[in-house]
């Protein structure tokens, strides 16, 4: 369905994506895993043909660099956060994208129905909650029924309930035969949706594997939300990333994913750098049958994998 060969994208002298190759079968789901700056977003933009890159990507046999428009007609794209004209009403936004994607009449309301936004047509985009915006983005992506859905950290700005909704919708889409590519730094999502995981680090593909191999022994991965009492969260996040943790920041605090057995590690890492964790909270469990003690060291260098 999608074929990428030695994709390279440099910004100045820094390679955001550096020689990545992979391919995806129709109907499967591929997760892109890596910390911020690993190249997930750049790879997705290359895939959409919206940035220039070296190498070759084909979607459904179509070269995205030479026939990007046709290739994009096969892809529904859900951004990290829907950025759209805030004054527009849902109905008119949907109508616009429906006409742009040559959707059938009625596709707009069907798509809204599918993501649970039916009845909100008169609302303005700016009045939607984060979760609703994300569902709207999904609805737009589903217009004209494309075979591929590409999602760039679709749940990163959502609360637990919103995340659950989106993941559930995606699971259904996958079941209906769509090919999914999604970037995520939440192991629970990767585990519950992904057939395969591409592990990216500093633009390089370090592993092309399955979630089960990436986290073979864990019983569960948990997300801790740390309350640093006003300390510099950016700095703390950097420290934790440096220690190999998946971290992200949102408006409510600093979240770090960690296996159940090693919940204390982030706290001690921060303590060693004199950052006090005032409180922490376990956000959710990933119910998954697995055994073993902790995530396998995923950061061993692999060659690029076909």
């Amino acid at each position: 369905m999608i074929n990428a060969e030695r994709v390279v994208k440099k910004f100045g002298r820094v390679a955001a994506v550096d020689g990545v190759s992979f391919s995806i079968e129709p109907g499967s789901a591929l997760a892109l895993w890596g910390s911020n700056g690993a190249g997930k977003t750049t790879l997705i933009r290359s895939l959409l043909g919206v940035i220039r890159f070296r190498g070759k990507i084909t979607v459904d046999g179509i070269d995205v660099r030479r026939r990007g428009k046709l290739a994009r007609s096969r892809i529904g794209y859900v951004p990290q956060e829907l950025a759209f004209h805030d004054d527009a009403r849902l109905a008119s936004s949907m109508a616009f994208f429906a006409s742009l994607r040559r959707a059938e009449p009625g596709a707009a309301s069907a798509a809204l129905e599918k993501v649970g936004l039916a009845g909100h047509e008169r609302k303005r985009v700016r009045d939607l909650s984060g979760g609703m915006k994300q569902r709207l983005a999904l609805a737009i992506a589903l217009l004209a029924d494309p075979p591929i859905i590409v999602l760039d950290e679709p749940t990163s700005n959502l609360d637990a309930a919103g995340r659950g909704d989106v993941v559930e919708t995606l699971r259904k889409l996958k079941a209906s035969g769509k090919t999914l590519i999604f970037a995520s730094h939440r192991p629970d999502e990767v585990i519950s949706l992904g057939d395969r995981v591409l592990v990216l680090e500093k633009g390089r593909l370090v592993s092309d594997t399955s979630p089960a191999e990436l986290w073979p022994t864990e019983k569960a991965v948990q997300t801790l939300r740390l309350d640093l009492g006003g300390a510099d969260e950016e700095a703390a996040a950097e420290i934790l990333r440096g220690a190999g943790h998946a971290v992200h920041l949102n408006g409510r605090g600093l979240c770090v994913s960690v296996s159940r057995e090693r919940r204390g590690v982030p706290l001690s890492v921060l303590a060693s750098r004199s950052i006090e964790v005032r409180n922490f909270e376990i956000l959710d469990d990933v119910r998954r049958e697995a055994d073993g003690s902790g995530p396998k060291q995923a950061l061993t260098a692999h060659g690029s994998v076909r």
Binding site: R45, K69, L70, R72, P79, E81, A83, L100
Partner: peptide, 17 residues
Amino acid sequence: ERGTLLYILAQPVSRTE
């Protein structure tokens, strides 16, 4: 600046269009 450009370009349209 608002990030909407990327979104519209991700649709099946060309930049010239």
